[in-house]
Amino acid sequence: MKDRLLDEPFASGLVDGRVRVLVGVEQDVMSACRQARQLAETLRFSRTAAYHIATAASELAANLLIHAGGGLLQASALLNPTLDGETLGLELLAEDQGPGIADLALALTEGYSTGHGLGCGLPGVKRLMDEFGIESRPGVGTRIRAVKWL
């Protein structure tokens, strides 16, 4: 609050219908989850949908931390450009420069986990959200996009 300068370049929090969280430690996962929920509520998603979005954000952020050692999670409002910027949905975007996923089909399989998780993170996110896309190049990184329509 005093050192405004410090957080300007990585402005976190709600800015222009968009939330950016640099995930580096466990606390960031909580903060990503909280902020995604806040954004969903501001966009007038139902309680259940906001809960789904928050949980999906938390899963994606936790994945960034566990599998890639950190990354960037963004949540942004999807606006309709023709209709006075009416809100259409919310997009979650998780990007990392981690080791990448060698076998995408396997990673999306129920109950499969490389870490010590329950193995339902990614397939869970897919079910919680309406659209789900994943790109990954081994050695380069992973990018996951998930959308919930209003």
Binding site: T48, A50, Y51, L118, R127
Partner: peptide
């Protein structure tokens, strides 16, 4: 567990 929480847990497959 809230109704939303219950629904989310089942969607996650937990």
């Amino acid at each position: 567990i809230s109704p939303e929480g219950a629904q989310t847990l089942t969607k996650l497959g937990i």
